[in-house]
Amino acid sequence: AFSSEQLARLKREFNENRYLTERRRQQLSSELGLNEAQIKIWFQNKRA
């Protein structure tokens, strides 16, 4: 489960760009304390 802070950040990123570069995913992973797979799957689900 994502914290409300993490979700807000993911939604902001998604609004700016529906697709993440690998580098951006790595940055978000480290900033949010999530693993890259969690972020990747969140974006895939959000696009679906």
Rank of each mutant, 00 (worst) to 15 (best):
K40T: 15
E31L: 06
Q44Y: 10
R25P: 02
Q6Y: 02
L28K: 01
S3T: 15
A48I: 10
E31C: 06
F14A: 03
Q38K: 06
G33E: 06
R9F: 06
F2D: 01
E16M: 10
S29L: 03
R18T: 06
R9A: 11
S29D: 01
R12Q: 14
F2E: 02
S29M: 06
L28C: 02
W42C: 03
N45A: 10
E16V: 08
E22H: 13
N45S: 09
Q38W: 11
R24Y: 06
K11P: 01
S30F: 14
E36V: 10
R47I: 13
R23T: 14
N17K: 05
A48S: 09
S4M: 12
A48V: 10
S4K: 13
N35V: 06
Q38N: 05
R47M: 13
S30H: 13
E16I: 11
Y19A: 05
K11F: 13
I39S: 00
L32Y: 02
S3C: 05
N35R: 08
A8S: 08
L32F: 03
Q26E: 08
F14N: 01
A37D: 15
E5N: 06
R12Y: 10
A48N: 11
R25Y: 12
E5F: 08
Y19P: 04
K46P: 04
A1E: 11
E22I: 12
L10T: 00
R25L: 15
I39A: 01
N35K: 08
S3H: 03
R18E: 09
N17S: 09
F43C: 03
F14I: 03
E16A: 09
R24G: 05
Y19D: 07
I39R: 00
G33C: 07
F43N: 00
R23N: 13
Q26H: 09
Q44S: 09
L20P: 15
A8T: 08
Q26R: 14
R12H: 11
A48L: 12
S4T: 12
S4Q: 13
G33M: 06
G33R: 05
E36P: 11
F43G: 00
A8F: 05
E16W: 07
R18C: 10
Y19S: 06
T21F: 03
Q27A: 10
L32S: 02
K11Q: 15
K40P: 01
R24P: 01
R24Q: 09
T21Q: 04
F2C: 04
L10H: 00
S4G: 10
K46A: 15
W42F: 07
F2Y: 07
G33S: 06
L7K: 05
E16D: 08
Q27P: 02
E31Y: 04
N35L: 10
L10K: 00
T21I: 03
Q38T: 10
L7A: 04
E31D: 08
L32W: 03
Q27T: 09
E13K: 02
I41Y: 10
R12E: 12
L28N: 00
A1F: 12
N15V: 08
W42Y: 07
E31N: 03
L32T: 09
S3F: 03
E36R: 03
E16N: 10
Q44M: 09
R25C: 15
A8M: 09
R47A: 11
L34M: 07
S29A: 15
N45L: 13
L20A: 04
L28M: 04
S30L: 15
R12F: 10
E5W: 11
E22C: 10
R9I: 12
Q27F: 08
S30D: 10
F14E: 02
L10M: 04
Q6K: 04
L32P: 00
E13F: 04
R25G: 11
E22D: 13
E36G: 07
E5G: 07
R9L: 06
Q44D: 14
E16H: 09
S29Y: 03
Q38M: 13
A37H: 13
N35W: 05
A1H: 13
A1Q: 12
A48R: 13
A48D: 09
E5R: 07
N17Q: 05
K11E: 15
R18D: 06
L32K: 00
W42H: 01
L7P: 00
R47K: 06
E36A: 09
E31F: 04
R9Q: 06
F43L: 02
R23M: 12
E16S: 07
R9W: 05
E13I: 06
L34E: 00
Q27M: 11
K11H: 15
L32D: 00
A8Q: 09
E36I: 08
S3G: 04
S30W: 12
L28S: 00
Q38D: 14
R24C: 05
Q27K: 10
A48P: 04
N17F: 06
E22Q: 13
A1V: 12
L7M: 07
A8P: 00
E22G: 10
N15I: 09
K40E: 15
N35M: 09
N35H: 10
Q27S: 08
Q27C: 08
R12S: 10
K46V: 09
A8G: 06
W42R: 01
F14G: 02
Q44I: 08
E16C: 13
A1D: 12
L20Q: 02
E16L: 11
N45I: 11
L32M: 07
S29H: 03
L7G: 02
K40Y: 13
F2K: 02
S3W: 03
F2H: 03
Q44L: 08
Q38P: 01
L28V: 03
I39L: 07
F2S: 02
S30T: 13
L7I: 11
Q6F: 02
L28P: 00
S3I: 02
R23E: 14
L34Y: 01
R47P: 03
R12N: 07
N17C: 14
K40W: 13
L28W: 01
S29Q: 05
W42G: 00
L34N: 00
R12M: 11
N35D: 14
K11M: 15
E36D: 07
N15C: 12
S30I: 14
W42A: 02
L28T: 01
G33Q: 06
L10N: 00
Q6S: 04
Q44W: 09
L20M: 06
N45Y: 10
K46I: 08
E31H: 03
I41C: 12
A37I: 13
E31I: 06
N15Y: 10
I39V: 09
E13S: 05
S4H: 12
Q26I: 10
S29F: 03
K46F: 12
F43Y: 05
K46S: 13
N17G: 05
E13Y: 05
E31A: 06
A1P: 12
A37E: 15
Q6D: 04
E36M: 06
Q38C: 11
R23G: 11
A48G: 08
R23K: 13
L32V: 04
E13A: 12
E36T: 06
E16F: 08
E22F: 09
L10I: 02
Y19I: 12
G33P: 01
L20S: 02
S4L: 12
N45K: 11
K40H: 15
